[in-house]
Amino acid sequence: MSDWKSEALRRIAADPAAIRELFPVVRRRCGAGAAADVRAELLAALPATALAEEVAGLYRYGDPAEKRAVLAALSALPVGDAGLPLVREALRTNDTTLVAAALGPYALARLDPAAYRQAVLKCVFMGIPLAEIGTVRVDGELRGMLRSFADERSAAGRPVPADVVTILAGEA
């Protein structure tokens, strides 16, 4: 374990607010390759009493890499539904990396069905391969929405994404 990381984890356990200055500098301290994993560890070190407030603040003041790290960690953190406003905010953006990160296992488990269907459709619309999302739940209503999307694309003479073709081919 790197000295910087072990010291960071110790500081966060002693003073949760310390994560505000530690979380943003992870990439420069630990390298781009390790940054996502280290950020997840820092979040996991937050005591339960400070978790919701700090997670919301890190997202609010985070750059896209920090926001993605928060979104990716939600399913592993005992935050209950407190992460849903962050997921909804990310899904309103036009940054494909944030939209994809928002639609992970946490959204799958907790987002209401209507919002979840719209989010999957938005991914498809933005050209995000569904394979990047991991597990995707396609019910009858979402299938109908994807069918309409494919019809619209075809009418415009534009290609239908391969993953949508695959989902619709399984219809029958």
Binding site: R20, P24, V25, R27, D63
Partner: peptide, 8 residues
Amino acid sequence: PRYLVKDG
């Protein structure tokens, strides 16, 4: 200060 530590 929250922004001056960012990578970008």
